[in-house]
């Protein structure tokens, strides 16, 4: 989109720099990044640790724990568990901490709270 024909929506005349500098938006961005960045680093480290172990620590991974089930299989299945767990955690975090504040900002903007000059317009709500 960008330079394409502008979308005919309420956001077309919004001063986004103004919105970007509001405390509310800064808070939303902080909450989003402080969750997704550490989590992304964590699961990537955990995944590569697993790949490295399978690649270079074959003896350790082949240690039998219970019947024919070895450490490699357990760690592999734990990758599934951690993926499901992070998914669930992110969904509940978004629902509680991100969605409400994003919806608030959206309602304010789409109700034309700010004009091009960054002045707050009151009384216009959607």
């Amino acid at each position: 989109m960008g330079n394409d024909a502008p979308t005919p929506d309420a956001a077309a005349s919004v001063d986004f720099k103004q919105v970007q500098s509001t405390k509310q938006f800064q808070e939303l961005r902080k909450r989003h990044r402080s969750f997704v960045f550490p989590m992304a680093v964590a699961f990537l480290l955990w995944y590569f640790a697993y790949v490295l172990l399978a690649d270079y620590a074959v003896g350790f991974m082949s240690t039998k724990v219970w019947g024919n089930i070895n450490i490699g299989l357990i760690l592999g299945l734990l990758q599934f568990v951690s993926t499901f767990a992070i998914t669930g955690w992110y969904v509940s975090y978004s629902n509680r901490r991100l969605d409400p504040i994003a919806a608030e900002i959206r309602h304010e903007i789409e109700g034309h709270e700010f004009d091009k000059e960054g002045n707050k317009i009151s009384g216009v709500t959607k």
């Binding site: 960008g2 979308t7 929506d9 309420a10 956001a11 077309a12 919004v14 986004f16 720099k17 919105v19 970007q20 938006f25 939303l28 961005r29 989003h32 994003a102 900002i105 959206r106 903007i109 789409e110």
Partner: peptide
């Protein structure tokens, strides 16, 4: 444009 993209991406405005 950077501000617009950042605000849109996180809030879904427009």
């Amino acid at each position: 444009k950077q501000a617009e993209m950042e605000v849109r991406s996180l809030t879904g405005v427009g």
